[in-house]
């Protein structure tokens, strides 16, 4: 199946402002595994990341405490089996590959927060959402899961939503970023009316 191309709902190359202060990129092909398990299960002990925070494993996987009794692991493409093998399934534990079901994007740069604040009412200040913070909230009217995952000392957010909203969400964020210089491909219809 590896030769079959995985089709992203966003399907656009990275967009950037000329000054690099805001960069928007599709991250759909990341592996996304959702684990639901009670706190007393072996899975919870292995995952060991509190709700609201995240940690990067030695393999480079990002383990997020998404909700109480729920974790999401984001990893490079093709790591589904490797990750699911790591999670003990004793007790009432559900491990689901949500790679296909979640659109995902990354927005980075010093203007990421001002841009996101145009369509999001979450307080994204450093104290409330420090690097590593995991949270949920509406962005452009779409329910999203967020991870603050800074890169190169710049604020960076991994944002995922139900796949079918992906194209809308990416466009809405791109529209918000126009104020900060994001260059939009020709022919794009933005939410400007």
């Amino acid at each position: 199946m590896s030769e079959i191309p995985m089709h992203s709902p966003i399907d656009v190359g990275p967009l950037s402002a000329p000054d690099g202060n805001v960069i928007l990129a599709d991250a759909y092909d990341s592996t996304k595994i959702q684990i639901r398990a009670g706190q007393t299960t072996a899975a919870a002990a292995v995952l060991a990341v509190p709700y609201g925070s995240s940690t990067r494993t030695s393999e480079g996987d990002l383990v997020c405490g998404t909700r109480p009794d729920e974790w999401t692991i984001y990893a490079d493409s093709g790591r589904t089996d490797a990750i699911t093998d790591l999670v003990p399934t004793e007790g009432f534990v559900t491990v689901i590959d949500i790679t296909h079901g979640r659109a995902m994007l990354r927005i980075s740069g010093s203007n990421a927060v001002p841009a996101l604040s145009k369509i999001c009412n979450l307080d994204l200040c450093d104290e409330l959402t420090p690097d590593g913070a995991v949270f949920s909230g509406s962005l452009g009217g779409v329910s999203c899961d967020w991870v603050r995952n800074d890169q190169n000392g710049e604020p960076s957010y991994l944002i995922s939503c139900e796949r079918s909203f992906g194209k809308f969400l990416f466009t809405a964020i791109a529209d918000a970023c126009v104020e900060f210089g994001l260059l939009i491909p020709g022919g794009w219809e933005l939410h400007r009316h």
């Binding site: 369509i119 452009g140 079918s164 809308f168 969400l169």
Partner: peptide, 11 residues
């Protein structure tokens, strides 16, 4: 403001 009415699209 800007009209943000989320639209869902199948693959």
């Amino acid at each position: 403001g800007r009209i943000l009415e989320p639209v869902r699209r199948s693959a």
